[in-house]
Design a protein around this nucleic acid. Sequence first.
DNA 1: AATATATATGTACTTGAAGGATATATGTCA
DNA 2: TGACATATATCCTTCAAGTACATATATATT
Lengths: 144, 144
Amino acid sequence: MSRKTTKSGKRTFQPGSKKAERYIQPSILLALKEGSTYGYELIQEISKFGFVEGQAPPGMIYRHLRDLEENGLVVSEWETQDSGPAKRNYNLTDEGQEVLLFWIDYMQNQAEKLLGFIEIYQRIKTEADLKRQTREPVKNSPLK
Amino acid sequence: MSRKTTKSGKRTFQPGSKKAERYIQPSILLALKEGSTYGYELIQEISKFGFVEGQAPPGMIYRHLRDLEENGLVVSEWETQDSGPAKRNYNLTDEGQEVLLFWIDYMQNQAEKLLGFIEIYQRIKTEADLKRQTREPVKNSPLK
DNA sequence: AATATATATGTACTTGAAGGATATATGTCA
DNA sequence: TGACATATATCCTTCAAGTACATATATATT
């Protein structure tokens, strides 16, 4: 019966509190398709897609950008003309566009699954409610 | 320019090929709410929600079940009367029901975000297409 | 009676993305 | 001059997913 409290009481099930589900890579790709340019700006921009709260952690963004460039989905070049520190401007490659399309397809699919799941839940709930009603009939207004 | 091919050529961006997004915990909870009982049955049942392909890996299911019980979302008891090896029957607790509700809420939210993301993508794409049209006007059927 | 197979549960190890901490550099403004 | 905003980058830890493996029992087959 030892009810082990998994050290530090982590609750593995908390929806959304865990990892993943943040769609940072497609968010970066879409922001770049929109015309955004460099990392620091992306940190603020991608929050509008709703998958990350507030400011995205810089470490993640720059890591993703490097990964994306390593894989040929984006290209970058330094921009020094402006005032302030130099920025590295990013642009989508053709392959990046394709991958974004794959993401869109995947996300469409995922959205359908999620809605299907919710539907099943609601069906079961309705059935359970109906059964409850037949067992304990309405108390108020027994006659019209 | 060194185009490092991240050892073993992993492509971090492949949509869906990565981790997460499999919603195994809510799938188990929903299957239990539907009336499924024990692990082996769940392995087959949860595939119908679409988040896992074919048979779910047993190791994952049993690990999840243990986690869920540690956290009080399910309770279990051995059933030995039937034929075949003993099974461990699971039931949702009230807390389990609540957490499933949280999941539903989260998934609803996630689905909306996904659809919103797709909308933005399509808007941008349409805009780009329109611009392309104005730059290079239609070649065929110039007059009605 | 031995063996194979289906049922059923469980443990252990590996990996990799997320998350966060930290470092560096430059220009602005008070 | 020294604090602050801008801008990029690296390193380290965590922890759930994933996978491989181990165990046990009942039934069917030869």
